[in-house]
């Protein structure tokens, strides 16, 4: 995590660049009024966590989208590498029975 671009988990390191004194990047997660969980909505810059929450409120809830905000500094996010996509996700793709639509339920039974 030495280069500034490591500040974003998805950004390749370019170690040659000098460290710049910028507001760090934060990832924003919002749970909406009827939402069950927080969803990633985007990123922004802020000097610290308190201001990041406030900025998130101003930037990402302009249309009353959310009731609860989480922010995480981008460099603290550990992410799977997209090239791992195969091993990580394929095994579960074969377990189609985990998905409710796998089962045909007669209409007469009603909502399930």
């Amino acid at each position: 995590m030495s280069s500034p671009n490591a500040a974003y988990p998805d950004t390749p390191d370019q170690a040659t660049k000098p460290k710049r004194h910028e507001w760090p990047l934060w990832e924003v997660f919002i749970r909406g009024q009827h939402g069950m969980s927080h969803r990633h909505v985007g990123s922004l810059h802020a000097p610290d966590a308190d201001m990041a929450v406030k900025n998130a409120r101003d930037v990402y809830t302009r249309r009353n989208e959310g009731v609860s905000i989480w922010v995480v500094e981008a460099r603290h996010i550990a992410a799977s590498s997209p090239s791992d996509k195969g091993p990580l996700y394929e095994p579960s793709e074969s377990k189609v029975y985990r998905h409710p639509t796998f089962f045909d339920i007669p209409e007469e039974v009603g909502a399930m």
Binding site: Y8, T11, R20, E22, L44
Partner: peptide, 15 residues
């Protein structure tokens, strides 16, 4: 702001 964030994923900072 959204677009700068997208550009930042490519290895440049917003500033």
């Amino acid at each position: 702001l959204y677009l700068y964030c997208a550009a930042e994923t490519l290895g440049v900072t917003r500033d």
